[in-house]
């Protein structure tokens, strides 16, 4: 656990030295800011329009599908490319700690960026009567946190597969789009066993429930299990590197 924290701290700090991380954070904040400003202006023009939080969260997720790969691609692939993976794998740290430490650092950085978006709900809270539903605010940000955990874990796993950053980035975006948009598609197109499996495996379904205020235990377990699965997969890939080295 100690080593996980050491590695997470190093990754977290290194994002603050990376222009890519700043650019990604700025893009996210800008997009949400523009949406927020638009909603406020719209509400000024049409008093019956009530700005809501869920649109903001959905925009944040849509952007993170493309932003998170830029943050996770370097986690292991760049270490392999630069050879620093040899330092980590010959230090007294087990492979699982390397994976979890890197994942935790990226998750904490993303959550730090997401935390800055709280400024918009806080402002919104002062603009609408009788204020924002705090329960919805909590479940909305819980959904974003769980999304970050799962998809960062998947990003780490894909980063462990490649040495090339561009390949990692493209593969991660493809995997994110598949997992987010397409895994639940059979449920809406057909019925039967395939549709049932697709519905249960749909990340988007649980996510939408959460931002609507309903936190299902199944959804929580599914997100946490998927996170654990991807982290274990990344660890296995990293271990297999030793054999392939």
């Amino acid at each position: 656990m100690r080593n996980v924290w050491i590695l997470a701290r190093k990754e977290y700090n290194s994002y603050f030295n990376s222009p890519v991380a700043y650019a990604m954070a700025a893009a996210l904040l800008f997009a949400i800011g523009v949406l927020f400003a638009g909603d406020v202006l719209w509400a000024g023009l049409y008093p019956e329009f009530v700005p809501s939080l869920d649109r903001m969260i959905q925009i944040a997720v849509a952007m993170m599908i493309f932003i998170l790969p830029a943050l996770t691609m370097r986690l292991i692939a760049d270490e392999s490319r630069q050879g620093t993976i040899e330092l980590l794998l010959t230090a007294p740290v087990n492979d699982a700690a390397v994976v979890v430490g890197k994942w935790l650092g990226a998750v904490l950085f993303t959550l730090t960026v997401l935390a800055t978006t709280l400024i918009y709900p806080v402002m919104l809270n002062g603009m609408v009567q009788p204020g924002l539903d705090r329960g919805l605010l909590f479940t909305g940000y819980l959904a974003l946190t769980l999304f970050t955990m799962v998809f960062t874990a998947l990003g780490v796993a894909i980063s462990a597969l490649f040495d090339n950053l561009v390949a990692t980035f493209i593969a991660t975006i493809a995997a994110f789009v598949m997992l987010w948009y397409f895994i639940g598609l059979p449920a809406s197109l057909s019925s039967g066993l395939l549709a049932d499996v697709s519905r249960y495996m749909s990340f988007i379904r649980y996510f939408e429930s959460m931002i609507g205020g309903a936190v299902e235990l199944t959804g929580l377990v599914y997100y946490l299990s998927a996170t654990a699965f991807f982290l274990i997969f990344a660890t296995v890939v990293l271990q297999s590197r030793r054999w392939r080295a």
Partner: peptide, 9 residues
């Protein structure tokens, strides 16, 4: 190691 890998940042 031979290539002296270091964290440049």
């Amino acid at each position: 190691p031979e290539s002296v890998p270091l964290y440049n940042d």
